[in-house]
Design a protein around this nucleic acid. Structure first.
Lengths: 196, 196
DNA sequence: GTCTATAACAGGATAGAC
DNA sequence: GTCTATCCTGTTATAGAC
């Protein structure tokens, strides 16, 4: 999506992503990133000539790729909508460590008109997830317009749950919101309070 | 809640809040804040001896006070649940400028264990809003446990909608999420797709 | 109370040795 | 490719005149 991606150490990217997810783009200093990576700042600049912006860029591309492989593939795949959705939600719970880890889409989208070329990646990430949820809703029988509405609400529940979990220092809001997503997307086939 | 609050220029606080909401805590430099306030950096330090942290602290206290006066007062007031909720949602739409302005609760909650004494304010803000929504749900007939779940989902919809709107540069997700809140809180009395 | 000026420091980024 | 050492800029913060 974003960059052709040369071969790079996945472990390194994971460490860098962790810093960005915890500190945000501005909050993450090169010292933080170097410490987490176990490298010197100059070494990071050898891997990322574009500096911090490139690190964030690749971290985002990495996350989007993981999303595509572990979440979207289920949402957009074949099979029963509810089963597909459960697979995707289970992997989302893993990705966000049950609400303990923030989302790069939120952490990298702060400033409005300024620099940051992340905007297109962030936008694409939200759109891809929304589309995936919408497909599940349509496959479950929702009309196109209703499916779109439900998908937006589902994405908002996911990210709102993450924001709440981080802000309150409590992962329960995230769990609550995740469990609300099936009802939100598939209300025709599920009744509130049923066996789940 | 946070500080006794000496008499301070509301206009100044509004300007500073705007910078924090747009740039985030780390992204907001003193130069940004001074420019927005129309003051010199040293003047800001005269008003806020505690520096940037105090500015953010007071901005948050300010926002919480506005919330209490314009949102919570309706949610926790008397009258028909739906009418109270509509009042609160209308004011929320104003506060967030229909999704164009981010929420301080999100912008100030980034780092986990670090410094930042905002955590208690952020937590209190989420809790107060959740409690207000829960009260509306209970008054509309929901059981205590169901009301709590619905309230968490409503808060998540609100903040998730804001995150989406900012990330996608489009206010429609925010509007969609706002309109989903009544259904979420009052599902017993409203059916999806009714006249609103 | 607000200004000009500046000190003290951290952050991002490079040079060059190995 | 990774290190040590360093530069330069922007940032936080303070001193002192008005």
């Amino acid at each position: 999506m974003a960059r052709p991606r040369s071969i790079d150490d996945p472990e390194l990217m994971a460490k860098l992503s962790g810093v960005f997810r915890e500190e945000g783009y501005d909050g993450a200093s090169l010292a933080d990133l170097a410490r987490a990576a176990g490298l010197q700042k100059a070494s990071l600049y050898h891997r990322f000539p574009g500096g911090k912006a490139q690190m964030a860029d690749e971290a985002l591309a990495d996350a989007l790729a993981w999303f595509a492989d572990n979440v979207l593939v289920h949402l957009n795949g074949a099979g029963a909508p509810r089963a597909r959705l459960d697979e995707a939600l289970a992997n989302l719970a893993v990705f966000y460590d049950d609400g303990r880890l923030a989302c790069l889409l939120n952490m990298l989208s702060a400033p409005e008109g300024r620099k940051r070329p992340f905007d297109s990646g962030v936008k694409a990430g939200f759109a891809a997830l929304t589309d995936g949820f919408a497909k599940v809703a349509r496959d479950a029988g929702a009309t196109g317009k209703s499916a779109d509405s439900r998908a937006i609400r589902a994405v908002a529940l996911l990210h709102g749950g993450l924001v709440m979990a981080r802000g309150m220092g409590d992962t329960r809001p995230f769990s609550e919101c995740l469990s609300a997503i099936p009802e939100t997307l598939l209300a025709d086939t599920l009744h509130e309070g049923d066996t789940r």
